[in-house]
Design a protein around this nucleic acid. Structure first.
Length: 482
RNA sequence: CGCGGGGUAGAGCAGUUGGCAGCUCGGCAGGCCCAUAACCUGCAGGUCGCCGGUUCGAGUCCGGCCCCCGCAACCA
């Protein structure tokens, strides 16, 4: 398979929550892949999208609680995401917000298309039906069984009423067989394998139609053909992946990037991306994304992450303690991407010191110092090519394995210094010392090259040090020990 | 019988298509002194949750059992 462009997305994050380590993880992975493919395919052939999902009841309520209009509230939280991504040096090409006027306009056009579309079986894609649910007049919204305590609304201490409201539904059932076939054939890839199996299992259990509008929701996009109804999350949020490209009015740009090469997400939204989204695309007559990769949730010190427990880690905390590049490194190096993982907070310090301060940072200091002191900062750089599986591992989403290989290169350079006793060699055999140091500097450039997608600033620093006319030991350690 | 993940050295984790069990930290003993008290070498430590099966050979495949955890609820 030859790839000539790469379109990668993160989910759009719901503004009801501020950015935490989970959002950061997904976004750092996306950024690393985007940077990797920019090097491989050229900057102009990669499009990396992230953004925020801003409609819905919960947002309206949170806004009210803070005495803000929904839009003001969204502006505030959305800005927090942008700031977090800037702290983490995220290189997204675009940041979409579902309250963008462009997006809202395009979503309406998509609704119109869906309204006019027929399923392969000749049925209307969307139809009106009654949604029956438990409605709390206090909350002014539908509750689920799980929301209730002893059959009562926990906030208003009264029993919800059974209320029916008319909603528009999407006829997913007419697409599910087709979808199953595409998943089985690999035309639509769901990774890892276990998530694909989970998806196929869900299909076996039966997947019903889903509702795409709400009468009771006020903060949302109005349906173009029914002014009583607002869009309910799915069509609005999922379609960000194509409205961001200009669909349906800027088809030139859209066709350049679509279909997406990779949608990244965590397990919570698997169902929507495995069923709803592809079905919507089929109804619009568009190609499905090539691949979706679903990763697991984090627990923190064995406990699930939750606001009420108060163990939520923010990206800013990590960046303050470790710096941008080290935060990126620690998140990617410590976990097998895809699996559910437990974050052990003390291990961040341990890994930071072992790999970055004692490992890479110290090596850069050793080599640059030896060159500066003994050869007036002069050396002979060679383009070297060590055979590694770093690229293969990145393309297989094995970021921890790729970084492990880089660490091995660091260790080998440290071993070489000791084996050759370079600090003695510079006194006894100047020529040989020069050659060994040239090799070491070249190794570091090789390491920097492969580190670029993971730690862009560090890679630049290393290149700057060793490509300088006069190599000098950096005044400030690359990674200060903690 | 809701869905899913996991149980591998003291701790935390890797283990691609089955082929002599690896990594990091920690422990112990050396070396080195160029470097961020960093680096290098060696040693100790594992019945790979339990039972059974397939195989010349299983942590790895199959079946059963035990234990832990996540999702389904603010949340990637």
């Amino acid at each position: 398979m030859s790839i000539d462009k790469y379109y990668i997305t993160t989910p759009i994050y719901y503004v009801n929550d501020v950015p935490h380590i989970g959002h950061s993880y997904t976004t750092i992975v996306a950024d690393t892949l985007a940077r990797y493919f920019r090097i491989k395919l050229g900057k102009e052939n990669v499009f990396f999208l992230t953004g925020t999902d801003e409609h819905g009841d919960k947002v309206a309520q949170s806004a009210e609680a803070k005495n803000l209009s929904p839009q003001e509230f969204c502006d505030e939280i959305s800005a927090e995401y942008k700031e977090a991504w800037s702290l983490l040096n995220i290189s997204n090409d675009y940041f979409i917000r579902t309250t963008d006027k462009d997006h809202e306009k395009r979503v309406k056009e998509i609704f119109t298309k869906l309204k006019n579309a027929k399923t392969p079986k000749g049925n209307d894609v969307i139809y009106q039906d009654e949604y029956e649910g438990l409605y709390c007049t206090g909350c002014e919204k539908f509750l689920t069984e799980r929301d209730l305590e002893d059959g009562m609304c926990p906030d208003h201490q009264k029993e919800p009423e059974i209320v029916k409201e008319k909603n528009w539904f999407f006829r997913l059932s007419d697409y599910i067989k087709d979808l199953e076939a595409k998943i089985l054939s690999g035309e639509f890839e769901i990774l890892p394998e276990s998530r694909k199996n989970e998806t196929l299992g869900l299909i076996k259990q039966g997947v019903g139609d889903f509702s795409i509008s709400r009468e009771s929701v006020k903060w949302g996009i109005e349906l173009p053909f029914d002014s009583e109804q607002k869009s309910y999350v799915w069509v609005d949020a999922l379609s960000n992946y194509i409205t961001a490209l200009g669909y349906p009015d800027d088809l030139d740009n859209f066709n350049k990037w679509w279909p997406a090469d990779l949608h990244l997400m965590a397990q919570d939204i698997l169902k929507f991306h495995a069923f709803y989204w592809p079905a919507i695309l089929m109804a619009l007559g568009l190609e499905l994304p090539k691949r979706e990769f679903i990763h697991g949730f984090f627990t923190i010190d064995g406990k699930k992450m939750s606001k009420s427990v108060g163990n939520v880690i923010s990206p800013a905390e990590l960046v303050t303690r470790y710096g941008t590049d080290a935060t990126r490194y620690l998140l990617l190096a410590q976990f097998s991407f895809g699996l559910e993982s437990d974050i052990k907070v003390e291990l961040f310090d341990e890994k930071y010191n072992a790999d970055l301060a004692n490992g890479l940072g110290n090596l850069v200091a050793r080599v640059s110092n030896l060159i500066e002191k003994n050869f007036s900062g002069k050396t002979e750089l060679k383009e070297i090519n060590i055979k590694t599986n770093i690229s293969e591992n990145i393309e297989k989403y094995k970021f921890n394995e790729a970084l492990k290989e880089i660490n091995k290169l660091v260790a080998e350079s440290n071993q070489l210094i000791d084996k050759e006793k370079v600090w003695e060699l510079v006194k006894s055999e100047e020529k040989k010392a020069y050659d060994v140091l040239s090799e070491l500097a070249s190794n570091l450039l090789f390491i920097a090259k492969h580190l670029k997608p993971f730690m862009p600033e560090t890679a630049d620093k290393i290149e700057k040090i060793f490509k300088a006319g006069k190599i000098e030991k950096p005044k400030e350690a690359l990674f200060q020990r903690i």
